[in-house]
């Protein structure tokens, strides 16, 4: 898969495979192209070249209506949760059901309560999103993402911006949902600690290129210095801290 923005390569011939029923984590620093990669996989952005396969179908060439049929089998938790401010928690979670099904109110009520129980937040149905904390918003967003019982759930930086406990709760939820519902999970993250906890398979991106992949143990013991620098989070190493290639002294001394 390949994608460029104004000449900047965001995804540089990346190939990835997400195993059914497993948790795959795409790790990478800010600007490494991991979110872009996920957006292309779900069809929010079109790759310049390359294909996306879901089961036996190729997704990039589908019409909008056909793509929407596949989207019903996908759930996505957005970084900012993306709940609708104008609707309360109950209506936010019930939204996909109201749009795509003709279920009776009683059934919708039961289903929403079940998902709320799963994320441990039964009882907040009547609150508005603005009344909830960041961690709660994420869990409500997750409840909405799984209300249609998707086959794949995508998580865009699920733990970033959360306190350690909320982040831990989200990690546990990702693993639980994976085990209870048997969904395939794809997580985009830069949170090393949580990634090693939840992942069955890890992929590391660096400036749009895949530099490593494997089980958490394989990644831990990788000998690639870039991988070691990334998982230790050290500022010194082959991954440069500065982005310019011009010499600093040259840049300030020569006008």
């Amino acid at each position: 898969m390949r994608k460029t923005y104004n000449g900047l390569v965001a995804s540089d011939d990346v190939t990835c495979r997400f195993r059914k029923g497993k948790v795959t984590v795409i790790l990478g620093g800010s600007g490494s192209g991991k979110s872009t990669l996920m957006r292309q996989v779900v069809g929010l952005e079109k790759p310049d070249s390359g294909t996306v396969h879901f089961g036996d179908r190729e997704l990039t060439s589908l019409s909008r209506a056909e793509l929407y049929e596949y989207r019903k089998k996908m759930g996505m938790l957005f970084q900012a949760s993306a709940l609708f401010n104008s609707l309360d928690v109950f209506e936010n979670i019930a939204f996909p059901l109201r749009e795509h099904t003709k279920l009776a109110d009683q059934v919708i009520r039961t289903m929403v309560k079940m998902k709320l129980e799963l994320v441990g937040l039964r009882g907040v149905e009547g609150l508005m999103p603005s009344q909830l904390s960041g961690g709660m918003l994420k869990r409500i967003g997750l409840a909405r993402a799984i209300i249609m019982d998707p086959e794949v759930v995508f998580y865009d930086e699920p733990t970033s911006g959360l306190d350690p406990i909320s982040a831990g709760v989200i990690d546990k939820l990702i693993v639980d949902l994976n085990e209870i519902l048997g969904v395939t999970s794809v997580v985009v993250s830069h949170d090393i600690e949580s990634s090693f906890k939840i992942a069955d398979w890890i992929m590391i991106l660096f400036f749009g290129k895949k530099i490593a992949e494997g089980t958490p143990e394989e990644i831990q013991s990788s000998e690639d210095p870039r991988v070691q620098q990334f998982i230790k989070g050290s500022p010194e190493g082959p991954i440069p801290f500065t982005r310019t290639d011009k010499d600093f002294y040259e840049d300030i001394l020569i006008p």
Binding site: R64, K72, M74, M76, A82, F84, R144, M148
Partner: peptide, 14 residues
């Protein structure tokens, strides 16, 4: 900004 439009897309709502 808050990705609500993308969220609609992902929920297969135009």
């Amino acid at each position: 900004i808050t990705e609500q439009i993308n969220a609609l897309e992902m929920m297969a709502v135009n």
